[in-house]
Computed example of a mutant assay.
Amino acid sequence: MTVGLTLNATNAPHQIDASVELAREAASAGLSSVWFGQTFGADSPQLAAIVGREVPGLQVGTSAIPVFGRHPLTVASQALTAQAATHGRYHLGLALGTKLLTEGGFGLPFERPVARLREFLSALRQLTETGEADFRGELLTAATPMPVRVPGADSGVPLLVAAMGPQALRASGELADGILPYLAGPRALEQHIVPSLTAAAEAAGRPAPRVVALVPGVVTDDVDSVREAATEQLAFYEQIPSYARVIGLSGARRASDVAVIGDEKAVAAEVRRYRNAGATEVVFSLTEIAGAADRRRTWDLLGDLAKEGASTS
């Protein structure tokens, strides 16, 4: 099992420079991957490409680009460029998106999201593996009158999906390389998410998918105040049906109840629970709400756990 974290430097005076510095700190702590979210700010594949270029050896990823408001041709171009820039260390995450951001931001109807995801993945797989496509679906077309190739991006691009619902898990098992569930605790992973995903992959004759569990977590002695901050920051997700469902399946009431907050011993035990529940990788988020000392404690522990996973794999 590998261990990584999400990086969010949107409050820094210079987001790109700050992201590179944070990634260097993460690598020096022994972490194996860093991931960047995608909203309406920095372009996450570009950011991952820059960071991966500046910090050799570190795996970099996007988690995750919504399929609404994008097209497989442009996303393939971005992903292949990032893959070439990092010499094969880039991982592309896709998401269904949300009704709130799709309709409020792009002015697009949030309709048939899983069908769109299926078509997006089908076209994108062709483009990233061969540089060409002739895909004509119900919802989108992706054809290449000229190739979508980036010399140097020879290893393809791992495709992952922020999937947690039954239909999205089925599509991901059949068409993607893995998933990026967020706010899905060990119970939800073990009892619902991993079995559905694995069954879909097996039925499609595909290899066992990766399960990159994104986990909000901080190592701290000030558990109450950090959890209070987490409750405020994560409340947004409680209004999104897919997240509300998986929070409930995790045996939690609030999103912050899923957060892993405590001292080194407590946090390490929870990370191992994710591993035992079927996570192939654990990626921590939320350390931006911690002070510098707690952030360093968190990263040092995750680095130690990454080494532990490497020694037992």
Results as ranks from 00 to 15, higher is better:
residue 1 M to I: 10
residue 3 V to C: 11
residue 10 T to Q: 13
residue 18 A to G: 05
residue 20 V to E: 12
residue 21 E to K: 12
residue 22 L to P: 00
residue 22 L to I: 12
residue 23 A to R: 05
residue 29 A to W: 04
residue 30 G to I: 08
residue 34 V to N: 07
residue 36 F to N: 04
residue 37 G to M: 07
residue 37 G to L: 13
residue 40 F to C: 00
residue 40 F to W: 13
residue 40 F to A: 11
residue 43 D to C: 10
residue 49 A to R: 03
residue 50 I to R: 08
residue 55 V to K: 12
residue 60 V to E: 07
residue 62 T to D: 02
residue 65 I to R: 01
residue 66 P to M: 09
residue 69 G to Y: 09
residue 69 G to S: 11
residue 71 H to C: 02
residue 73 L to Q: 09
residue 76 A to L: 12
residue 76 A to N: 08
residue 77 S to Q: 13
residue 79 A to C: 07
residue 81 T to G: 08
residue 82 A to H: 04
residue 87 H to A: 15
residue 89 R to E: 12
residue 94 L to N: 02
residue 95 A to W: 13
residue 97 G to D: 04
residue 98 T to L: 07
residue 99 K to V: 13
residue 104 G to S: 07
residue 104 G to N: 05
residue 108 L to W: 01
residue 109 P to W: 11
residue 110 F to C: 06
residue 112 R to C: 03
residue 113 P to A: 10
residue 115 A to C: 01
residue 115 A to L: 13
residue 115 A to D: 15
residue 119 E to Q: 05
residue 121 L to N: 03
residue 123 A to P: 06
residue 124 L to T: 08
residue 127 L to Q: 09
residue 130 T to C: 09
residue 132 E to N: 10
residue 133 A to E: 12
residue 133 A to K: 01
residue 134 D to Y: 06
residue 135 F to S: 04
residue 136 R to Q: 15
residue 137 G to C: 06
residue 141 T to Y: 09
residue 144 T to F: 11
residue 145 P to V: 10
residue 150 V to R: 08
residue 151 P to R: 11
residue 152 G to T: 12
residue 152 G to C: 13
residue 156 G to S: 07
residue 157 V to P: 05
residue 158 P to R: 10
residue 159 L to H: 03
residue 161 V to W: 09
residue 161 V to S: 12
residue 162 A to E: 10
residue 164 M to P: 00
residue 166 P to L: 07
residue 166 P to D: 15
residue 168 A to M: 12
residue 172 S to F: 08
residue 175 L to Y: 09
residue 179 I to S: 05
residue 179 I to G: 02
residue 185 G to E: 11
residue 185 G to N: 05
residue 187 R to I: 11
residue 187 R to N: 04
residue 188 A to L: 03
residue 190 E to V: 00
residue 191 Q to L: 14
residue 191 Q to Y: 02
residue 193 I to Y: 02
residue 200 A to P: 08
residue 207 P to R: 08
residue 208 A to S: 14
residue 212 V to W: 12
residue 213 A to V: 09
residue 214 L to F: 14
residue 214 L to T: 10
residue 218 V to Q: 06
residue 219 V to H: 11
residue 223 V to M: 06
residue 226 V to E: 05
residue 228 E to C: 03
residue 232 E to Q: 13
residue 234 L to H: 09
residue 235 A to P: 00
residue 239 Q to L: 05
residue 240 I to G: 02
residue 242 S to A: 15
residue 243 Y to M: 02
residue 244 A to R: 15
residue 245 R to K: 13
residue 246 V to F: 04
residue 247 I to G: 01
residue 248 G to Y: 01
residue 249 L to K: 01
residue 250 S to D: 04
residue 254 R to V: 01
residue 256 S to E: 11
residue 257 D to S: 04
residue 261 I to F: 08
residue 264 E to F: 00
residue 266 A to E: 15
residue 273 R to W: 03
residue 273 R to P: 03
residue 274 Y to Q: 02
residue 275 R to W: 14
residue 275 R to V: 14
residue 280 T to M: 06
residue 280 T to E: 08
residue 282 V to L: 04
residue 285 S to Y: 04
residue 285 S to L: 11
residue 288 E to W: 13
residue 288 E to Q: 15
residue 289 I to A: 06
residue 290 A to Q: 06
residue 291 G to M: 10
residue 292 A to R: 14
residue 296 R to F: 01
residue 298 T to Q: 05
residue 299 W to G: 00
residue 300 D to E: 15
residue 300 D to K: 14
residue 305 L to A: 08
residue 308 E to Y: 03
residue 308 E to G: 00
residue 310 A to Y: 01
residue 311 S to E: 15
